[in-house]
Amino acid sequence: MSYCMVIDLKRCVGCHACSAACKAENGTPPGNTRSKVMKKEIGKYPEVRRISIPMLCMQCEDPACVAVCPSGATVKREDGIVSIDKEKCIGCRACIIACPYGARYFRGNDLGYFGKDLTPFEEIKYRNQPKGVVDKCDFCLENRLAQGLEPACVQTCVTKARYFGQKEELTELIVSRKGYQLRPELGTNPSVYYLP
């Protein structure tokens, strides 16, 4: 049993609803996001297209971040999710360096959107975003998955471009639509697939 996400790039309109939902759900600090949407121009004139590519932690089968973590804070769970124990993280940032997907960020300060005075929302959310540790997407493990809910980005996607479930359930979709992983040559075997 391993969680997997499939993102249909034909459906994605780049509206950033997933980024906003993620930010609201996980209360990520200013300047940092667990989920984002990248825009890229592809092709050459006159055959030019602009595509939107949602990015998040790839929850790799063989994660580079787990191997380098010296404290054992980053672990690969049995359900396939790569999670961080914030109580164990020492803030060495080796995982950020090791991750080829830029999925992680380091919280260097404890400021909120309005400086040192945190809003009630920030006070609650930042308990899981302490200063001096690393954070990343974990498919909304504690706040949604544990309650039987889908990750916030999946639930909020206005074009239903995201599919979330067990890998076995999504394999047919991935194969039939020729889904691909990002940078497969690195051997990390991501659990996030993109449909062209």
């Binding site: 973590c69 010296p70 404290s71 054992g72 804070a73 164990k88 993280c89 020492i90 803030g91 060495c92 940032r93 380091f106 919280r107 260097g108 200063k131 001096g132 540790v133 690393v134």
Partner: peptide, 15 residues
């Protein structure tokens, strides 16, 4: 000085 949580430095010995 380079660690985000220097007070937890002993945890670096875990792996």
């Amino acid at each position: 000085a380079d660690l985000g949580k220097p007070e937890r430095f002993l945890k670096v010995l875990a792996k």
